[in-house]
Design a protein around this nucleic acid. Sequence first.
DNA 1: TTCTATTTATCACGGCTGTGATAAATAGAA
DNA 2: TTCTATTTATCACAGCCGTGATAAATAGAA
Lengths: 202, 202
Amino acid sequence: MDPVARRNDVVDALFRVVLRDGLQRASLRAVADEAGLNIGSLRHYFANQQELMSFAMQAMLDRVSDRLLRRVDEMGDVSALTREQRRSLTAGLLSELLPLDETRRAEVAVFIDFVAAARTHPAIDAELARRSAVGTRALVRRILVRMEDTGALRPGLDADVETERLSSLLDGLSLNTVLHPEVLSPEKCVRVLQAHLDDLTG
Amino acid sequence: MDPVARRNDVVDALFRVVLRDGLQRASLRAVADEAGLNIGSLRHYFANQQELMSFAMQAMLDRVSDRLLRRVDEMGDVSALTREQRRSLTAGLLSELLPLDETRRAEVAVFIDFVAAARTHPAIDAELARRSAVGTRALVRRILVRMEDTGALRPGLDADVETERLSSLLDGLSLNTVLHPEVLSPEKCVRVLQAHLDDLTG
DNA sequence: TTCTATTTATCACGGCTGTGATAAATAGAA
DNA sequence: TTCTATTTATCACAGCCGTGATAAATAGAA
């Protein structure tokens, strides 16, 4: 059996447990049960809890990152597009970070548990959580710079401030869509993002 | 001994534990130790874990709510103020929700653990978390409406969308300031909020 | 003082936790 | 087939958990 595939199976099981019962209940035994493995087998692939958690969090970040890169690849040559088309692509790219379907909703739910736990839980790598925040801001900043280069950005904006404003808005929208779906629906989530991008365009 | 004061002492101890070690480690024994009580004493004031958690979360919401109301009271007659003064008051009021000092930082840190756990943890009242989200939006909406009434709001804005945009921005800013202080400082947090309010003014 | 209600303090139980140690089963190469 | 390395499966241990039950101490009123 391919050990890489096995580890991914375990990570999938972990995500299901966290989504359903919360990170609190994601014990080694619970994850092993969910994966249909004996705890001994699980421990053969992950020496201890810390290793499993770090691997799982890294795997989640990789998945999101891969999806984003695939989006960028599919975009192709941007210079040949109209301003309207470019705006749509930008919105689509950032939407990749929002919990708009069940897959991304699960990801964000698990992610919230992870970053919240990273503040205090010894087995969860706080550095990984920090890197994801930095990564989001790097992406958002690149998008804003590109908008500015193509003249799509309203003049007189502070790049630092606008990067943080859009990044934190995305985080807040994700948080509320997942934790309070009856307060913030995915559709409204998109409308808010759209409104913000329109505002930046001026 | 005043039972009300005792319960508040316990809640304070709970907050300290959650801030330092996370909600995960806030067991009845740990909270009792932090409060300098025997677990038996603690259980005399709180029959079980669920009762303690609900009471603590309610207490936290009350504290924030009280601070907001006090702010509103101190504002007095708004109509006598200049536009600039009113803008400053608005920013100050909303800043009450941001983790700008150690007190509010602790509150937000505890709050994050609570709302995240509310999604799955049986002992934590999810309805309370929902109400706090609804409450924030009611406050933000009232502020936006008041701005519109005094002509301080840029025309052509969708109230629903702007309410959610500002609310989620506040949530995102709070989240990142607490979880990634090296990425988002309290000072930058304020600057971002200020920029957003300026944007709404037009 | 005596009685009563409040408050504080222990003990015990079953259950779950991560993990060390070790045995059993399986698969693949020689 | 035989040997070896991988994979799977158990057992045990110390530690923490919430909670039920009950005893001890304290305070305040009669």
